[in-house]
Design a binder for these strands. Structure first.
Lengths: 293, 293
DNA sequence: TAAAAATACTCCATAGGTATTTTAT
DNA sequence: ATAAAATACCTATGGAGTATTTTTA
């Protein structure tokens, strides 16, 4: 058995898609197929029910997934502790992250990290995915956190978290929008989105394309440079925004915003760590493993 | 990472010898060296202190060993449960085991197994290693347990337990023997050993050879056909026996026998499972995994 | 000098890729 | 017709072997 094979299985099981797993793990789809087939051969049982393109876990698959999570956790702990032993866990760690991650994901992680490793001096560069990758290549940062869409050669990506963009409206405005809408309804609605060049708009663009809609078809009232601006704007205007779920947990909890489901148009993205290829170990890896647990 | 690599490391760490690990896992010694080197490269740290031929675990090695045991346990559980899911866990399982194993190791395991799987009908064939292997090849048994010395082609061995032969004398006899003796002292002592052709005598023979002593140099009072006979004989005669530690736990606890250490002459042997190659899965594997946990 | 580990080399199995076909919606 | 999974085929790397050298007790 080999741990990458387990990671492949885990990814397929979580995404319920060979293709998505391939994207997430940066390998080809046939490679995924083969790994799963090898596993199925090894255990002499099917792990997925293939009903055409729909796949579902079998009992054996569910059992494997449980153990899988456990074993992969163990591996992570092992890596982490070996890393602690190797490094002196002091010095500087220069991070770079794209906007959503830097604003909504990292703060609690950074707090936890500095509490655990007070000797490490952290810095955080803010920029879009491209800028973060360039900073990495120029040696201005040690570890990047980006939306893993465009894979640059020479960089090594490892999956971190999943993110979902959702349409939201104010609960107090006068805009009449049902709980669920169809992608075709979007062009008729007044929208506030992030600016061109942002990862967020990219994801929206690609999701629309799947339904034959172009960004230019939309009725975009305004492009704003940050999610915070959009959220605040929404509370004072009768329009709809599309933002990361991770940015609106408080607003949802307090009932100031509500999600409008766009039927069969998931706006999914993966957050990844990025490092220079061959830069194994060191504080960067310590941080990665710490953030994952 | 790959689980066989971890098994290699575990075996080296337990035996504190690359060569012994190679024997235990049925691979060449250079293969072991390479695996350890790969691990050391991966973690960027030495796992073993090499003081010439003596090796010892480093801090990193100790840490890895801990995690290793844990991860390999997980793998075993996984295999076991996948096995339960695949098999109906009923039917017949025909075991074969060589004497020491059948008498001193298996009984509690068999009891535990039938409690857990009452639907399985167990049978146990008794014989020396060679006989067990022949029974396997002739399809008369499904799984063998032998002293893994002579590797037959077409059979697949997996390590089970380690065993040690020790010299013992009665605590009540008149034989004067110090706590520790040298191998050279053995020919002068009256001995009771197992019969020719037994695995036990084989091991003793090879251990003696290491010190340039032949079996025929010994003063063997008697060759007996079972360990039980030897133990009972010792309690009524002033001589020394050489038997498996696994056979004398009660006698040691009750103070009827005592161990005489033979300086720098370990009489070590590995117990292995044996199966026909390509006979993966099934009740045999269920039993193997059950016995290991 | 003998025993253990390391190195050198050769060979094959496997993992990964691209291109293509099959299948189900 | 389209999108996902499976298959075919090729290549390169890594793991295993044998033979040999190095090291140290």
């Amino acid at each position: 058995m080999n741990d990458f094979r387990l990671k492949v299985f885990q990814s397929v099981a979580r995404n319920l898609s060979f293709t998505k797993a391939a994207r997430e793990l940066c390998v080809s789809q046939p490679a995924i197929t083969k790994h799963v087939q090898e596993l199925e051969a090894a255990y002499g049982m099917r792990l997925f029910e293939r009903q055409g393109s729909r796949i579902a876990l079998t009992d054996a698959g569910r059992l494997l997934l449980e153990h899988c999570e456990h074993i992969l956790d163990d591996y992570r702990h092992l890596e982490f502790e070996m890393n602690l032993l190797r490094n002196r866990c002091a010095g500087e760690l220069r991070l770079g992250a794209s906007t959503t991650i830097a604003q909504y994901v990292l703060p609690p992680v950074l707090a936890r990290f500095t509490r655990r490793f007070p000797q490490v001096h952290l810095s955080l560069l803010n920029g879009n995915s491209r800028e973060v990758e360039i900073a990495l290549q120029e040696g201005r940062i040690d570890l990047g956190l980006v939306e893993g869409i465009h894979r640059q050669p020479g960089l090594k990506y490892t999956p971190f978290l999943q993110d979902e963009l959702v349409a939201v409206v104010s609960t107090r405005g006068k805009l009449r929008v049902p709980e669920e809408i169809m992608p075709g309804d979007l062009p008729r609605l007044p929208l506030v989105l992030r600016e061109k060049g942002s990862g967020t708009l990219d994801v929206i663009g690609r999701a629309l394309e799947e339904h034959g809609i172009k960004l230019s078809d939309l009725h975009v009232l305004m492009h704003l440079g940050s999610t915070e601006s959009i959220k605040l704007f929404l509370e004072h205007a009768d329009c709809m925004g599309i933002v990361s779920v991770r940015s609106i947990s408080r607003e949802l909890a307090e009932g100031r915003l509500r999600v409008v489901e766009v039927e069969s148009m998931p706006m999914h993205r993966d957050f990844c760590f990025v490092r220079l290829q061959g830069q194994e170990g060191g504080l960067a890896q310590t941080f990665e493993l710490f953030a994952m647990s």
